[in-house]
Write a protein that binds this DNA or RNA. Structure first.
Ligand SMILES: [Zn+2]
Ligand SMILES: [Zn+2]
Ligand SMILES: [Zn+2]
Ligand SMILES: [Zn+2]
Lengths: 154, 154
DNA sequence: TCGCATATGAGACACTGTATCATAGTTAAC
DNA sequence: GTTAACTATGATACAGTGTCTCATATGCGA
């Protein structure tokens, strides 16, 4: 689900650097590289995958990538998606239409579906309790078509 | 967020046993015990916690509990909740009002908030694609009040 | 009751995410 | 430009989770 706005990229970079400054963190070489690779990567990715890419291309260590992923998450550049799997999945916000995920309990595959803007009513509840919302996601879980058919065959 | 309906317990048991039958699985001693402990446990729990309880009380092995948790999940007796943490959290449906979760990116603590029944419009999208929905959950992520204050102190 | 299919237990295992700590890099003051 | 203080990084080691294997036990239908 890709858009294609060019200036959005810059906005993401600014968002990230602003977050770093506010948190008293430096805009270091490693942070820039991990940011770029996260943005370059279209679709969902795990920390492990990102770490492999960053290590192969730029010898950034696994520990560093895991650390930067947390900053990316808190800055709102990426969001965490998925559940049920033992891996955490991320995707960046840049270049993506708002959407949600439904995941199969068995094979852990996703279906993406578009946002319908009906979730806004939940916000006041949370804000009243002091929760600072960075994002949200609707998670449907169930069994995907493929896995249903596999059961029938068996 | 507890209700308190007694017959609901039986319904859950029937739901579980029906799922087992349909999947060609036996209604074994271990499966009954894990089911009972999952229901007895109010609030969220991890597989590991459930495994400890079942082992201490009934010498059910960790591997078995992990296996049964998957059946409980597929049968709809429990649902998986949470993300961001490295543990999977579950809660049973029995005796619970429908609700959603908002989780802090830092300390992984939850806020629960009630269901507002606005999520139904998403269903046709998924069903059209052959996805058999077992449940859904709205996930808000952000920073909780406590963690916001900790940052200010620092 | 027997024989076959399924379930279980014990342990090993792979992998993820975290912690530690020594080294390197960055920043700002002098 | 040098120095000192602070922050980031890399290279491990580590703990915990969820999975797998395979030998044994159990349940179930004939
Ligand atoms: Zn599937
Ligand atoms: Zn997506
Ligand atoms: Zn928190
Ligand atoms: Zn809950």
């Amino acid at each position: 689900m890709r858009l294609n706005t060019k200036s959005a990229f810059l906005q993401e970079r600014i968002k990230f650097e602003k977050h770093l400054s506010l948190s008293g963190l430096q805009i270091s070489r490693a942070r820039k590289i991990v940011f770029n690779e996260a943005i370059r990567n279209h679709g969902h990715f795990t920390s492990e995958e990102l770490a492999k890419i960053c290590f192969n291309k730029n010898k950034i260590s696994r520990a560093t990538v895991y650390r930067v992923v947390k900053d990316l998450l808190e800055s709102g550049v990426i969001r965490e998606t998925a559940f049920g799997d033992k891996h955490h999945h991320y995707e960046h916000i840049y270049d993506e239409k708002p959407h949600h995920h439904a995941q199969c309990l068995r094979c852990h595959e996703f279906i993406e579906f578009p946002d319908m803007k009906e979730d806004e009513r939940y916000r006041p509840y949370l804000e009243k309790r002091g929760f600072k919302i960075l994002g949200h996601e609707m998670h449907f879980y169930g069994i995907c078509e493929k896995c249903q058919n596999q059961q029938k065959m068996k």
